[in-house]
């Protein structure tokens, strides 16, 4: 009854890009969530939109311009946060709304307020190009490699920044690396889930895995499984039922989170 999904090249491209995003988002997400940095992902996503607008305006691949703006903004956010001249969350609000304003103005200049903007806002695997997949793959390899190299100090700084510093770890370097990785993750996820839904991919699988109360490495593994499951089934469901891909993926994630949360907390009340 179902037609063969793999006969369409765009679906294969979407799955390739989607799986890469599904692997990377929670791996970065666990550090952001535990450091109470969840909103940074959302802010950087909005910043990326300004980058996308610049890309559309100048005819450059928008994923690349999104990457450049997100990384630049991430350094700015971190600098403002460390300086303590502006409250942390106000710095985020500043970047979030400021870059959105910039995006809208640039888009209106180039008469780009059309359907392609819509696909960047909410993601669309139909518009994922072969060059997008190439860029996403390269970014994914870079992010995973940096993460593997800095995993140990990242865990230490996330758990106990002061003790990490006393052990000789440069906490400023580690914080900067984390936020650059967040910026890269956000920009590589845009084609799939879009600017407005990225933080869901980064946050929801992690907070779902946290409900299991396991060790750090197990929590990452749980989050990866939940993320892959949601992204792949979301892409399939959106194809067969003709739904928005990004929205479907996030709703699958939410459904898994709700089930786990209810199950764990009902059991919790019985046990205690």
């Amino acid at each position: 009854m179902f037609e063969n999904i793999f006969q369409y090249a765009f679906i294969v491209r979407g799955l390739e890009a989607g799986i890469l995003v599904a692997i990377i988002a929670p791996a970065i997400g666990i550090f952001l969530v535990l450091r109470r940095y969840s909103l940074i992902a959302d802010t950087l996503a909005h910043v990326s939109l300004a980058g996308i607008a610049i890309g559309i305006f100048f005819g450059i691949n928008p994923v690349l311009t999104a990457l450049a703006t997100a990384v630049a903004a991430s350094l700015g956010v971190e600098k403002l946060r460390v300086s303590k001249k502006v409250y942390g969350e106000s710095a985020l609000a500043l970047f979030l709304s400021g870059s959105l304003a910039l995006a809208v103005v640039i888009l209106s200049l180039g008469h780009g307020l059309n359907s392609s903007l819509f696909s960047y806002l909410f993601g669309s695997i139909v518009t994922v190009t072969a060059s997008d997949v190439r860029i996403i793959s390269i970014l994914a390899v870079i992010v995973i490699s940096i993460l593997a190299v800095f995993y140990k100090p990242l865990v230490y700084v996330t758990f106990d920044e002061e003790a990490a510093k006393v052990s000789g770890i440069s906490t400023r370097l580690i914080n900067t690396i984390l936020i650059i990785l967040a910026a890269m993750t956000v920009s590589l996820a845009i084609p799939i889930v879009g600017v407005l839904l990225i933080s869901a991919l980064i946050v929801i699988p992690v907070i779902t895995a946290l409900q299991f109360r396991k060790s750090f490495i197990h929590t990452i593994i749980y989050a990866e499984i939940i993320s892959l499951l949601s992204v792949v089934s979301g892409i399939f469901a959106s194809f067969y039922f003709n739904l928005s891909t990004g929205g479907t993926i996030v709703l699958v994630m939410l459904a898994i989170f709700s089930s786990v949360f209810l199950l764990k907390n009902i059991r919790g009340t019985v046990r205690y």
Binding site: V155, A163, A164, I169, R213, I217
Partner: peptide
């Protein structure tokens, strides 16, 4: 915070390790 006793104590070794 999702971390086991063993993982916490292992952190003590991270500072002196090469990346």
């Amino acid at each position: 915070f999702p971390i086991s006793v063993h993982e916490v104590v292992m952190m003590g070794r991270y500072g002196s390790k090469k990346l």
